[in-house]
Nucleic acid binder design. Structure first.
Lengths: 231, 231
DNA sequence: TGCCTTTGTGTCTTTGCAGCACAATAATAA
DNA sequence: TTATTATTGTGCTGCAAAGACACAAAGGCA
């Protein structure tokens, strides 16, 4: 094999850490591998990138094939390329994470996922390939990003209570002493990005909470004028 | 060509944004391309990744071939993989940045750089490929990272004055109104990571400044106990 | 009607950041 | 030797944001 040929005997894939939130725990969607290598092991959903496909597109495709969802929040994190990371050849992988509303995910529509299941990130065991390392990277990125951009809302239903929002932040950031309710509300409301819907929860056995909605248009207007979210 | 073969008809490269600081401007090292495509254009130093080479290693190799330097600060930033980003085929590239002491760089030791030259980042023109976009990403990353980790010192000589350090931060962060001298000194000295050498500048036509040195050992001890640099 | 659970709210203290001016030091020129 | 020039080194005062903290109000349920 010529040197030039050997350069091209390599491939790249995308792996996607798909985050969801069930009201208590931060979760990720894992698939159980049906084929070697690592048959039977849990792994991040991923696939080789098609020759004429952009990287982001490939990550979107992986997500859609697994969940049927399109247009969700997606972010590239970093690339893993250790020579021996894939037993069958030189495959580097570009890691992404996405944020979906867990209620939108119904059932596996497709294909390569014999079984897909939500796992609490705090209880993820040993994964195939270098996927634990990839997960760590993506989780770190999420922790940083969720404070610098209003992406947490991608994990919540359109209407939510302030308590739900706080639980989400606590699940992601896992601060040692929790978050102070009054200070959290003060800070989040002072952004003026939450729209008070003048509706309340129904069917709860206690004082019902008010429902809010994230005002994306307003956020984008502010960003255009130099605003930067910080929580 | 079979589908499997076509998956493997692709390659990956690394591109390295090499930052230096000359006391006033933040600079990057660019090479002028001697071959098509983009012959004659300035470009980031980069190369294909060898089949049996890790990504970080490839980035280090590119740097060493160009500067002769080893063991410098290096960080992966992100991966660029648009289908049409390379005119000759599907080549995705993993972008890195490195920080070197500009005085350590003497002359081009090697090879693929017909001419390498420092360019002020503020005066970089149109580059080959998508290298302007890559540069933007790396610069943004540097701006963020230099505030979260004591990496600025990688760009300065071992002994430096507080004014030099401040000029470096101003060159990187380019804050609208400059940085206040007293507040900067207060903050940087309060980290207790600068070792006062009890030496002063010599041969300057004004009051000589004290020389300091970054205490890397101390920093690493603190990090091990949960400290996080923030400036 | 009373009980249970969760929501919603204000104040005080502490900490960090921004803004600001002038005397001390060394080289150089007169 | 003295004056000039350039740059260093230093402290205080608001102001804004963050952290700590407790209790009445609302609704379902027994």
């Amino acid at each position: 094999m010529s040197e030039v040929e050997s350069f091209f005997k390599s491939a790249f894939s995308v792996d996607n850490v798909i985050f969801g939130f069930d009201g208590g725990d931060l979760k990720i969607l894992l698939i159980q591998r049906g084929a070697a290598p690592y048959r039977g092991k849990w792994a991040l959903p991923g696939d080789l990138v098609y020759p004429n496909e952009d990287l982001d597109t490939a990550a979107e495709r992986v997500l859609e094939q697994l969940t049927g969802l399109r247009g969700v929040y997606l972010e590239q994190v970093r690339t893993f390329g250790a020579v021996d990371r894939h037993p069958l050849g030189r495959v580097i992988t570009i890691a992404y994470f996405s944020l979906i509303k867990i209620s939108d995910y119904t059932v596996t529509p497709a294909s390569f996922a014999q079984s897909a299941k939500w796992h609490s990130v705090s209880k993820v065991g040993e994964l195939a390939f270098d996927h634990n390392e990839i997960l760590d990277s993506c989780l770190k990125r999420l922790k940083r990003k969720v404070r610098m951009a209003p992406i947490g809302f991608e994990l919540l239903p359109p209407k939510f209570t302030l308590t739900e929002l706080q639980l989400l932040y606590e699940a992601i950031l896992a601060p040692p002493k929790g978050i102070d309710k009054r200070n959290f509300r003060k800070k989040i409301l002072s952004t003026n990005l939450l729209h008070d819907l003048n509706e309340v929860q129904e069917g709860v056995a206690h004082r019902p909470a008010k429902l809010y909605q994230f005002d994306k248009d307003k956020y984008e207007q502010l960003v255009a004028v130099g605003y930067s979210f910080d929580i």
